[in-house]
Structures are given as structure tokens and as C-alpha cells.
């Protein structure tokens, strides 16, 4: 193991001590650009499978200063959540609960390093935090990357949510079920009540959400109430400022189908106003957490290549 140049940072913010790890760049390639990593959901600053440590170390080799940290109530930072249901907390994260801490770290990053601008990024809910935070810091942000970004509004009631099934996923399930039509085991499962009836109903009984042809933000946030309006608004704000955004998804991640259905073919369509300000990359066989080694390597590679171009 070669020595790594990493420092521990502590920032007092709103009576909470927030802890972060600052990765210093390799001197020979040093850039005056910082990369701020926003935690994926409630996972602490190392990321699922220690992916954030690997990513941060890889980015320092390209000359970036990198900072990853724990917002209040997570990892090694102070704070306590009153709620404990993960679904409720994810909703809060997607609505920006960690943005205030992220903005404090954003400013702190400038104070403790020679950086002049910041790329901000995150996986899963960290992508929501990154986009919302960037919309508040448009002058200093030069890029945003997200991986496995959830775009639905988790606040919808369960009844509404139960109708949402993107077309390609519905087709996939339909094919899978039809293949099993002569399978005795499958029928046994059905009659013994072990099948996923909710999914069956969604696939065969309900109409899937209609694909819309309107590219406007108004359509997305008003006519498709399932999309997280705050996130759409944040994206539009950064895109209007021509700040590039990277969206990475694994092809086996349900969030990818949802993104394609409700975002890529609408707001980000080739006819839309934002077509030049984003890049969409997909990783074959990647799941939401990029669990497979090949997916981990690929996601790091994509982010590394994209940041180099900025």
C-alpha cells in the first residue's frame, strides 16, 4: 500500500460537529478544482462497498481535491433523527434535508484548500443532495454528477405510487410472466398465494403511466405528479446556467427505467432546451449499488473521464 494523503476535517455547524475526510491531490497533476461527495442515502461517508473511498482516491490521481463527509445524524457526525423509518428519511433526503450541511461543507472546502471551483456529486440520494446544493451555489459549481439518482417523488401516497410502472419494466415483467405460462411450479406459486399479486395486477390490469411528449418543466412537475419537483427545478436551474450534469445508471437498476421514462424522453429529449448540458451513461448489469466489481470499476471510470473533461 502506498501512502495516501488524507486529512480528517471537523466542522462545527449548527451545534453539530460534522466530520469529513479530505483527500489531497497528487502534486504533479494538481488542479484547483474540488470534488465534494454527497453521501448515498444514510450510508456513511465511505459509501456502499467503500465505493466513495475508491472513487475519491482515483480522483486524486487526476489531480482533484476531494472531500467526503457525514451530514448531521449519519456516520461520524453529531445529530439524531427523530424519524426512524428509512422510507421517511429517504423522502427527507430527496427533499434536501442534507443540503444545509452540504452547503456549509462547500464553503468550508474553499477555506481549507486552494480550490477555485467545485464539482459536486453523489450516488442515489446523494445525487439529489448534490443537484439541490449545486442549484444554491451556481457561481462556484462547474459540474454535477449523479449515479442511480432517484427522480420519483417518494411523498406520493402509496395508492398513487402503486400505479407507477415504466413501460419497459412492464414489458419485461409481462414477457417473464408469459414465459412461465406452462410452468407448473409457477401456477403452484400463484395458487398457494406466494406470487407477487401486486406486481401481477400492475403488469396486466392497470394501464402503465402514459408516455408524454411535452418537454416542459411545467408538464413534468404539474402533469406528472410522480416526479420530484424540487429535483427537476434544481436541474433546470443548473442547466440554465450551463453547468454540465452527468447521470449514470446501472441497467439493472429500476431507477434507470424510471429516469428514462420520466426524464430522458421528456425534459432531456433531443428536442428540449437542455440537450447539450447533460450526459447519460449506463452500465450493463449494474444494480443500484453497483455491487459487481465490473460495475464499480466502470462507474469510477465514467466519473473520472467525465471530470477530466470539465
Amino acid at each position: 500500500m502506498t501512502a495516501v494523503n488524507e486529512k480528517i476535517l471537523l466542522l462545527k455547524h449548527r451545534n453539530n460537529l460534522l466530520q469529513g475526510i479530505y483527500h489531497l491531490p497528487e502534486k504533479k497533476n494538481e488542479k484547483k478544482i474540488g470534488i465534494l461527495l454527497c453521501n448515498a442515502g444514510l450510508t456513511y461517508n465511505i459509501g456502499v462497498g467503500r465505493l466513495y473511498v475508491r472513487l475519491a482516491r482515483a480522483l486524486t490521481k487526476s489531480g482533484f481535491h476531494v472531500l467526503r463527509f457525514d451530514p448531521s445524524g449519519t456516520g461520524d457526525s453529531d445529530g439524531l433523527f427523530e424519524k426512524d423509518l428509512i422510507d421517511d428519511l429517504f423522502y427527507d433526503i430527496e427533499q434536501g434535508i442534507f443540503v444545509d450541511d452540504t452547503l456549509a461543507m462547500f464553503d468550508y472546502f474553499f477555506r481549507i484548500s486552494p480550490i477555485k471551483s467545485i464539482i459536486i456529486g453523489g450516488f442515489c440520494g446523494g445525487g439529489n443532495t448534490a443537484l439541490i446544493a449545486a442549484s444554491h451555489k451556481r457561481d462556484k459549481t462547474i459540474g454535477i454528477f449523479t449515479a442511480g439518482l432517484p427522480i420519483l417523488d417518494r411523498g406520493l401516497d402509496k395508492q398513487q405510487m402503486s400505479f407507477i410502472l415504466p413501460k419497459d419494466l412492464a414489458q419485461y415483467y409481462k414477457k417473464t410472466y408469459l414465459k412461465k405460462i406452462l410452468n407448473l411450479q409457477a401456477w403452484k406459486r400463484l395458487f398457494s398465494g406466494k406470487s407477487n399479486f401486486r406486481l401481477l395486477l400492475k403488469v396486466f390490469m392497470f394501464k402503465n403511466h402514459p408516455r408524454n411528449e411535452d418537454n416542459s418543466f411545467e408538464f413534468l412537475s404539474n402533469k406528472i405528479p410522480c416526479v420530484n419537483a424540487l429535483m427537476v427545478d434544481s436541474f433546470c436551474q443548473v442547466a440554465n446556467k450551463k453547468i454540465p450534469v452527468l447521470f449514470v445508471y446501472g441497467t439493472k437498476d429500476k431507477a434507470n427505467s424510471i429516469f428514462k421514462e420520466y426524464f430522458l424522453t421528456t425534459l432531456l429529449s433531443s428536442k428540449g432546451p437542455y440537450k447539450d448540458f447533460y450526459q447519460y451513461e449506463k452500465i450493463e448489469n449494474g444494480d443500484h449499488n453497483f455491487s459487481l466489481p465490473i460495475a464499480q470499476q466502470k462507474v469510477i471510470e465514467i466519473i473520472k473521464d467525465w471530470t477530466k473533461k470539465i
Binding site: 500500500m1 461517508n45 465511505i46 467503500r50 473511498v53
Partner: peptide
């Protein structure tokens, strides 16, 4: 090799 320590997890 774990958490915020030096090293890689495979070590």
C-alpha cells in the same frame, strides 16, 4: 483496509 483507514478492502 476498511472504513477510513488506509489500505484496500482486499488487503
Amino acid at each position: 483496509g476498511t472504513g477510513n483507514s488506509w489500505g484496500e478492502f482486499y488487503e
